[in-house]
Design a binder for these strands. Structure first.
Lengths: 206, 206
DNA sequence: ACCTGAACACCGTTCAAGT
DNA sequence: ACCTGAACACCGTTCAAGT
């Protein structure tokens, strides 16, 4: 039975200000920005930040909550069928009646969306990758969920013959995080290119 | 005319001890290990460390010098011809007289060697990636050299038809650093798998 | 010519004291 | 119920003073 009394007004305001300043700082200087400077910019003492967010990951997790919802909804949509067919994974031979295309482009769409998500802040790719293995991480649940969606999408693509038979969920997770890292440390274009080429390598051979 | 007087004996000893302790620390805790703890373990004051190595990158650069030589020699060997043909990039159709294979497996060998090099210490991939763009970095020259070798090897592979016509040096650099990052943050197996799949995506279609 | 370590500026994290 | 900020431990980097 969690107590659900509404928080004190000043507490709520501090919470919001901290989130806003953290978002700005993370966007500018990455997810390793100094927590002290965030508290300073939010106009609260450092202890107040720790009162609301017991760890850096908790702060990141709170900031990603809404984005996560949107991402998972996209994942569900891709899984339940109606895939937008931009950027198809396997270019189907012209004239071939092909039901591999939808599963392929659903997977491709997911990889691009998940990569964009993991590249929201610089440094986030590492945090999410670690969060997948670390049950104590506040990001663990969302990482698991992402991995699960990826796994189901490759499974579908595999069964429909869109990707090679040995393609695995780990391939999708690895590609996603590697591309997010490239997005941060090299360029968005480099990330996009890796995705294109690697998905091509994952595609089933005729 | 750089003065080449032999250094004082204690200076030389401190230099060597710092290198040894830095190597150990970087191996254990990555390239962001505290410099103060390295100096402490080497039994010298922090100023002595800075006297020998004006920056963290200088320290890393000194540690990588020998490894770099070996890597560049391999690059030259791969460029001048005699490629070992383990792990061929493009599995040539059996019975096909094929001169694409050597250029392809030379490229593959390079990507694997360069990745192993960039994964020597955890955190090194970022340092090297930044070093390529930053002329002030002590790692800049070696990064340039690596990029150059990669570029020449894809060019050869491209011309011999082993890889697709739009394959570029940037593809090789990106794959190398992304794989090195995976090696650190996920697993060596994940890095290897990305390399295999991506090289497959880069291979020319029949 | 080289080494020392204090000095300065900064940070993560906790917690007793306040309101 | 929440906030404050001092306290502690740690770090990067510089530089005057020593030998």
């Amino acid at each position: 039975m969690t107590s659900t009394r509404r928080p004190r007004a000043d507490a709520r305001r501090n919470y919001e200000r901290l989130l806003a300043e953290a978002d700005a700082a993370f966007k500018e200087r990455g997810v390793d920005s100094s927590l002290e400077s965030i508290a300073r910019r939010a106009g609260v003492a450092i202890g107040t930040l720790y009162g609301h967010f017991p760890s850096r990951r908790a702060l990141v997790g709170a900031l990603l909550r809404e984005r996560n919802e949107a991402l998972f909804e996209l994942g569900d949509r891709l899984l339940t069928g109606s895939a937008p067919d931009d950027r198809p994974l396997a270019r189907s031979a012209p004239g071939t009646p092909d039901d591999r295309a939808p599963a392929g482009s659903a997977l491709a769409g997911w990889v691009r969306a998940a990569t964009a998500h993991a590249a929201t802040y610089s440094g986030l790719a590492s945090l999410l990758t670690d969060g997948l293995d670390d049950e104590a991480s506040e990001l663990h649940d969302s990482c698991l969920r992402m991995a699960e969606i990826g796994e189901r999408l490759v499974a579908r693509a595999r069964e429909s013959g869109a990707v090679r038979p040995d393609a695995t969920g780990a391939d999708v997770t690895a590609l996603t995080s590697a591309a997010a890292w490239l997005h941060e440390h090299v360029s968005p274009a480099a990330a996009d290119r890796l995705i294109t080429v690697t998905l091509d390598g994952l595609a089933a051979r005729p």
